[in-house]
Design a protein around this nucleic acid. Structure first.
Lengths: 189, 189
DNA sequence: CGAATGACCGGAAATGAAAAACGGTCATTT
DNA sequence: AAATGACCGTTTTTCATTTCCGGTCATTCG
């Protein structure tokens, strides 16, 4: 395996295990079995190394989200499946979960920026799917950015936030029932 | 004015100006022109004094929200007016704004608890209005708690959150247009 | 005599100086 | 030419000391 890949894997492991701030370049170098200076021949600095890792993670998440959709299935079904897949990834993926925690607890700026960027890309992803749905004639024309934002925030609220203020999580059927009878209902043709 | 009221006014002023943590009991006593011990004859401790102030604030907010509604006007119109009134209060009211900031920046536990409680009461308030709308035959029967939660979160997202990740605030017409054509549309009879 | 007070108490938080750790560089090695 | 790790300046952590604050209660006051 080439040195660049070794470094990327070492960094991914360390960021996942300890987060951004608690990962040191010395540590990455040691795990990757390279000298610290070698890292800087491939990545300008710690933040760029971090960004490279995150880009990979986003790709992974996108792939899983696409895999959750069934080609030819109705828009609502696939939208729901993809969003649930993304939100599951959010808490299941070790690095993503770690970053959310670090962003909230330690408030590392580099991490908060990355998290904001990931969310923006997720919303963008949803907006593209809505756009496709409109072109396919499944979805009514609308402001895709606004609707994508509302959809994402709604899923976040029901899947992630509800449990924090109530003593039980919402079942998936409750979520799909609610959204199906409200947002989706008026979204579809 | 009786001593209890003097203390309440002094505390309200200090909490509004400096927040919960930075307000000291000595300071409240001085502003109220009473000895520190006197405060403890009316309030068990600092947190109870704080809670008393917050209860008053919530009452204020409720009154303003009710005043924003027009008797006899359609559900959607009044729901929108009340929610916008509440969200305006959130950032306009000195104490509320201060508490939001303190909860986010200093993360004072007592403040975060109070903020969570206020939000729960707002959602409860909305749920009651939906319930009324259903009984009046204006709104379709639904899980009022769930719908109230979704509505509140949607308004928070569009009014409060949008501006943080985009370089312009949403106009009120954009918000009402979006929600009118999605959530409200499928909510009304 | 009962309500009011502020000096006082113990624990928590602020302070600041010294030490350790970190990201990034670059002269040296391989 | 590529790789390395000792080194540098800065930031962060540590920790002993001091200050501060919520709450109490013996004393004072009306």
């Amino acid at each position: 395996m080439d040195r660049r890949t070794e470094i990327l894997q070492a960094a991914a492991k360390s960021f996942s295990l300890f987060g951004y701030k608690a990962t040191t370049m010395d540590q990455v170098a040691k795990i990757a079995n390279v000298g610290k200076g070698t890292i800087y021949t491939f990545f300008a600095n710690k933040e760029e190394l971090f960004n490279a890792i995150v880009v990979g993670m986003i790709e992974e998440m996108r792939t899983e989200a696409e895999a959750a959709a069934v080609p030819g299935a109705p828009f609502e079904e696939n939208a729901h499946a993809r969003l649930m897949s993304i939100l599951k990834f959010r808490t299941t993926h070790q690095l993503y979960a770690k970053l959310i925690d670090e962003g909230k607890e330690i408030r590392t700026p580099a991490v908060q920026e990355v998290l904001a960027d990931i969310e923006a890309q997720i919303v963008q992803f949803i907006a593209e799917k809505i756009e496709k749905g409109i072109m396919r004639g499944e979805v009514k024309p609308c402001n895709t950015d606004l609707v994508a934002y509302l959809l994402f925030k709604s899923y976040m609220a029901l899947v992630v936030d509800w449990g924090k203020t109530h003593d039980r999580e919402l079942a998936e059927t409750e979520i799909i029932d609610l959204l199906s009878s409200t947002i989706f209902k008026s979204l579809l043709c």
